[in-house]
Amino acid sequence: MASPIANTFSVWHGLFLRETLDRFFGCRMAWAWLIFEPVIHMSLIAVYVAARRGSGGVGTNLPVLEWLIVGLMVFFFFRRAALQTQHSVDSNKAFFAFRQVKPNDVALVRSTVEAFSMFLIATMLALVGIICGYKMIPHDPLIVIVVCLLVWALATGYGMITCVIMRLVPETGHLFMVMMMPLYILSGTIIPLAMFPASIRDILMYNPMAHALELARSSFFYPYHSMNPSLSYLAVWSVSLLLAGLLMFKLFHKRLIER
């Protein structure tokens, strides 16, 4: 009889391949949409920014396009990983017929697949950017890696918590969908937080995603006068949310797999 750890790895292995297949080839050209969605989004914003260029905005000597792309990619990573985790249990329902497949397996594996997919897309974008002559290499890569890991944990934890809440009160699904929009704006994805009045800025900096975006940007651009983001603040949020998510899955395990 295999050990519990060996069993878990077998399950992760099977789920990882199934989820990857689903994500990249689940429907016709699924892989292309994965790339086009952020690219189209970025292009539209780039057009808008180009049209407004000269009328202020991001401010001193900053490469506007790169600034936007870094922020958008970090935010997309959060949003995609969170949404994928949120729906992980529903879309793998059939597999709970096997005792060894647990809800936390599907959630963790699914958001890991999302991390790989975003890594591929980000690498491709960076390569295209470098070829086109943009500055797409961070001067502090280690911070970028740590921020990505923390955003992954944040998104997974958030996804797991909302997944449980949506199972208990399905109507909240609408709320979580609507909430992504203000989070997008208030994390400083397209509007720099520096443009908000100081009193509001202080409140906005309670949002861990604002820290994540600013940290990622400050590791790409130097000098970068940012909002003094704190890595440890982000880390506390990420670890807490992930642990809370795992705990919720443990507590509501029966409700999650119940038909």
Partner: peptide, 20 residues
């Protein structure tokens, strides 16, 4: 135990894998 969107073969592969 059967995921409707996957083929029979894909389901079979998944089942084999999660049983090690």
């Amino acid at each position: 135990g059967l995921e409707a969107t996957l083929t029979g073969r894909q389901n079979a592969k998944f089942t084999c894998r999660i049983h090690g």
